[in-house]
Nucleic acid binder design. Structure first.
Ligand SMILES: [Mn+2]
Ligand SMILES: [Mn+2]
Ligand SMILES: [Zn+2]
Ligand SMILES: [Zn+2]
Lengths: 138, 138
DNA sequence: CAATAAATGCACTTCCATTGCACTAATTAT
DNA sequence: ATAATTAGTGCAATGGAAGTGCATTTATTG
């Protein structure tokens, strides 16, 4: 049993052929992917399967869903040992308005946000839109 | 000519009956509203008109659109003399997972975000999800 | 008053997320 | 090993919200 399979099992996800492929696909990408991206990469499989795979991955802490403001959900693998649910471990996301790519800036944690009296924070989403390194470089 | 009419004209928006009503509706609300909210409040008017009114308002600095992560666009009146476009004037938004309401926290400006070399920020969206003052109070 | 421009209403489209249900593959119990 | 059960997959359909084309009405201007 290879490494990916073992990892999925550790996360309580059965390592089916499709799941292994999707995992590897995401691992090799440096940017966040949309369901449609995966769909285009695996035309043999059905959209529903891919959709539910992402949900399963998300529920088991393998990927996190990213709302980058485009209206299209993106997904990216979680960092090794990341705790996305915990406020202290949330990082910021960057969406490039030129190439339309979204990246995790995992090094850039979301600062603590002060709220007015009576407000309780459960989750924070911080998205910066602009020009990415690749696009500004030329 | 009353105050609302004058204000709309100042913003280069023709003060039609519908626009005045929508403006007053939003002014009296303390929370951000969705197109559907306005639709329900003005069943006599058509969704398209309301939709385009919001766009017109937005283009002329009367309202700002809010992406609170629910997938449904919300709108709120801009503060007097606010400059939503400018990064320094961006405030944070709070979405209550209990009552599902979204509010502008206009006092809480978005802190400056450091980005890696090569990244250029054009816009920042910061949304905190949790329990609002009203809902935590009981 | 006529000509022009702006605003409105209706119908329709698009896009993505999501679900129900049938079918197949894998796991567990007998 | 075979049957029973559970999990995964595929197809078809639905739903919600944003957005557009065009005809009609209303307001503005010459
Ligand atoms: Mn991320
Ligand atoms: Mn606001
Ligand atoms: Zn880019
Ligand atoms: Zn609330």
């Amino acid at each position: 049993m290879n490494e990916v399979e073992k990892f999925l099992e550790d996360q309580k996800v059965r390592p089916t052929a499709m799941r292994i492929l999707i995992y590897k696909y995401m691992a090799q990408k440096k940017i966040a992917v949309a369901l449609t991206d995966i769909e285009n990469a695996f035309t043999k499989s059905d959209r529903t399967t891919l959709y539910r795979t992402l949900k399963t991955f998300e529920e088991n802490g393998i990927v996190h869903q990213i709302d980058d403001g485009t209206g299209i959900s993106k997904y990216a693998l979680c960092e090794n040992g990341c705790n996305c649910e915990i406020e202290q471990d949330l990082h910021l996301h960057f969406h490039c308005s030129n190439c339309n790519e979204t990246v995790c800036l995992t090094e850039h944690k979301i600062p603590h946000i002060n709220l007015p009296e009576g407000y309780l924070a459960e989750d924070v989403n911080l998205v910066v839109k602009g020009i990415c390194e690749k696009c500004s470089g030329q």
